[in-house]
């Protein structure tokens, strides 16, 4: 029963990159199959161009056209490409010094076989068929002989830890589980690793009620990205009977004008056959109809 929960989790987002004058010009020109380097104050040429060189000096903004060819300075053969790699067949990563420049560019070399790769080898640039003003407008190199999308996609497998697992398992059975350090006696819902007042592990699990006091709340009237509900709706802090910390949930089943600090509320559970290891088993909290709790009885939770 206490097998640790686990679930896939994908972190994915496309950022909107402001590229500035130097990087922006370079990337925009790639669309037109134009390869340029930028001159540094001491007369070197950098490709890819940087706004600031390794001494921290701003580069001059003077661009020079370059031949789309260069020399491999170091390389690594990848027999089994990873998901984010530029090829799904074997290829090489390389540091490539473009002809006429003084630095090197990281890119891929489509060489077919590891045997064709050698430091010092000559390579030519292959343009991508479709271009969108990013470094991937250069498809790769092959042996010769100002906005940029920055997509991130990372696949994790996360678990909530022992205590939170116990909490979620409880919810699956329609119960609220809290944790306490037997010495301090305060009940934390959900249970955490340690009682902050003592530093001891919250080693005991206790069940608390699904009824409690609404201590404070807000009415949300603003739409925002990722929002699941349609405003307005009420969101509040509830100290369950037997708990010493609040949980947060939706408050419903009552007109917004009638929602009060100190109101007694009870969990409105989903039908039992829909229960999962989730706080979403509870649709919302609704008034019990009991008299309100006096302010003094919950003010320490505000």
């Amino acid at each position: 029963m206490n097998e640790i929960l686990s679930a896939p989790y994908v972190l994915e987002y496309t950022y909107t990159r402001s590229t500035g004058p130097v990087v922006g010009r370079f990337l925009e020109n790639l669309r037109y199959e134009v390869l340029e380097g930028v001159k540094t104050a001491d007369g070197r040429v950098l490709c890819p161009p940087l706004e600031y060189d390794e001494e921290g000096e701003p580069t001059t903004g003077e661009f020079v056209p370059l031949r789309p060819s260069g020399t491999v300075k170091s390389w690594s053969w990848v027999q089994e490409p990873r998901k984010g790699h530029p090829f799904d067949r074997p290829f090489a990563w390389a540091l490539i010094q473009i002809d006429g420049t003084d630095n090197a560019m990281v890119h891929a070399v489509d060489a077919g076989k590891a045997k064709r790769m050698k430091t010092g080898m000559r390579v030519r640039l292959r343009w991508a068929d479709e271009k969108n003003g990013t470094i991937r407008d250069i498809a790769c190199f092959e042996p010769i002989a100002p906005f940029l999308p920055g997509p991130v996609h990372l696949e994790y497998d996360v678990n909530p830890g022992k205590h939170y697992t116990a909490y979620l398992r409880g919810l699956q059975e329609g119960k609220f589980i809290g944790g306490r350090d037997p010495e301090a006696g305060k009940v934390y819902v959900p249970p955490r690793g340690a009682d902050p007042m003592t530093g001891n592990p919250t080693s005991e699990y206790v069940e608390v009620a699904d009824v409690g006091v609404l201590t404070t709340f807000t009415i949300i009237r603003i739409p925002f990205e990722g929002q699941k509900l349609t405003p307005p709706y009420c969101f509040g802090a509830i100290v369950l009977d037997g708990a010493d910390t609040p949980i947060y949930h939706l408050i419903s089943g009552v007109p917004h004008d009638d929602i009060r600090m100190g109101m007694r509320v009870k969990a409105k559970w989903k039908p039992q056959d829909e229960w999962e290891t989730s706080l979403e088993n509870i649709l919302y909290f609704e008034p019990t109809g009991e008299p309100d709790a006096p302010f003094d009885s919950y003010k320490e939770h505000l």
Binding site: V158, P160, L168, T218, L229, Y248, L279, E280
Partner: peptide
């Protein structure tokens, strides 16, 4: 996963 959804 397992984190309460941001509703607020």
């Amino acid at each position: 996963p397992f984190q309460p959804q941001l509703v607020a």
